[in-house]
Design a binder for these strands. Structure first.
Lengths: 191, 191
DNA sequence: CCATTTACGCTACCGTCAGTATCGATACCT
DNA sequence: AGGTATCGATACTGACGGTAGCGTAAATGG
């Protein structure tokens, strides 16, 4: 088997600009917000033609969601009991959202998803699947209850960031996690 | 003193279409979301020329925020202790956001405020003042802590509505209020 | 070397929407 | 009547998301 690379398709291969486009998207949305981060600006920041972006992503929303998924990465689901899994996942999500570029970009995209049905569709199909449903299965809770508590954390973080324009302070994140976990029933356990 | 009416200014008086414009704005934003609710559509639904809207409000964002303030009304701050004031205010806000047209429109506007700095400015100056600061003074808590708990309720409600497209079920609203109040320290007290 | 295939940059373009300008008509006052 | 300010209608500008077409660059196989 010499086909380690699965039979490269003919024609000119794509240049490796995906990383540059992602970086430009993240920083632009981070600095300007979702709406003012126009595709022209992102393309210029990435040193890429606008048409190239639309050849790889069908819309601005799809580009930004892909960029966030790339920056966010998979949520680790570790721990013995429900409370432990919940605790580590919540704290991981909170920490990730608190990172300089990621959180602000996330806030802008979540925001636009509320008023834009098309982007809402992209988000619910591409974001709910990997994270929310994985959490739901790992926790073994009824769907509504799990989604509700995840929303408490994510929604509060993003809303607060949107209103103040800055990430929440660490004390508030810790208080929020503690509040949710105490209501969740079990104690977080060690480590 | 015959000047009960304070010396009406000369010229043709404004027609009383503000109520019709507010109603059209609320229903249009409720049905379509913030972005698809164009000013042309709102004007058509209100039976008013688009130029008339721009003579009374400087921007679409100002119109929608004014419309929401009108629909939302002042938050009642009643009760003896901090916990009682907090409890009644939280439940009142949650109930108001749960109303059919108001909550969905609020979600759309809050959402856009995250990505649109101009609308964020309108919201933070016109919405924070009457509600958040009033609550803060009534509660006598440090600003960050009060704002944080309000954000827990409002942010979670709006985020959940944005992700699912529907208002939260009553059980979740009650659980959220209970969770916040239990963390807040005091017990809510009777009534 | 050459033909083929695909990706890229560039420019021009379309549709939509926020917001502005203008003009004639209308409603109130003195 | 004359003055003043609002209203509706139409037309317009500018920005943005997204598309089309063209010439060119990079890879393949013969």
């Amino acid at each position: 088997m010499t086909s380690a690379t699965p039979a490269r398709p003919p024609g000119r291969p794509r240049s490796g600009v995906n990383a540059a486009v992602f970086a430009a998207t993240l920083s632009t949305v981070h600095e300007l917000g979702y709406a003012p981060a126009t595709v022209d600006r992102i393309a210029a920041a990435a040193g890429v033609a606008k048409t190239t972006i639309y050849r790889r992503w069908p819309s601005k929303g799809a580009l930004v969601v892909d960029c966030l998924l790339d920056a966010f990465g998979p949520v680790p689901l570790e721990g013995a009991g429900r409370a432990e899994v919940m605790s580590s996942a919540l704290r991981w999500i909170a920490a990730k959202i608190g990172e300089p570029g990621v959180g602000d970009a996330f806030a802008g995209v979540f925001s636009d998803a509320v008023s834009d049905p098309a982007l809402r569709e992209i988000l619910s199909t591409r974001l709910q699947d990997p994270y929310r449903i994985a959490l739901q299965e790992a926790l073994g809770e009824p769907e509504d209850r799990v989604l509700f508590f995840i929303d408490v954390v994510v929604g509060t973080l993003l809303h607060r960031m949107g209103m103040t324009g800055e990430p929440m302070v660490e004390a508030d994140v810790a208080a929020l996690a503690e509040m949710v976990l105490s209501y969740f029933g079990d104690d977080p356990g060690p480590a």
